[in-house]
Amino acid sequence: MRIRLAVNGRAQDLEVASHALLLDVLRDVLDLKGAKRSCDTQVCGACTVLVDGLAVSACTYLAVEADGRSVLTVEGLADGESLDPLQRAFLDAGAVQCGFCTSGMLLTARALLRENGAPTRDDVLHYLRGSLCRCTGYRKIVDAVLTAAETAR
């Protein structure tokens, strides 16, 4: 099937199978490897990308559903060499360890801050329930999201 979508601000015109998953199209067709495959069941959040600003699990989202929409992946977060406040905050706070969850965490946090520019710690905890990290114990991730929210205000 033919789909037209914007990925990280760039128009894409793609021929995809009707059952193709957005994650596979991003990783294998567009060579955007930042979104990661892990649980395949919408639990871990490693594959999270934004579709029209909303966080979705690309591992279970059909590519054809993205037709006519705008997709943001971690590769599109920074503005050229200038990092998004979330990326900056994750680096500074030590919120990154192995990095496998990082793309999904960043995009989930981006969706949160789009909805709520001044989240409380509980808001962040609630929002991150769909994003697993096995390395950090989460504290530094939550701190980073709160810091980024402050920076952006």
């Binding site: 990661k36 495959r37 971690v74 590769e75 990092l83 680096l91 990154v96 960043l106």
Partner: peptide, 21 residues
């Protein structure tokens, strides 16, 4: 000193490569 990790930039930009990449 609490230096930010040397592989941090590649990880927050999605450029870090794992085997399946």
């Amino acid at each position: 000193h609490p230096a930010p990790r040397v592989d941090g930039l590649e990880k927050v930009t999605g450029r870090a490569r794992y085997v399946t990449d």
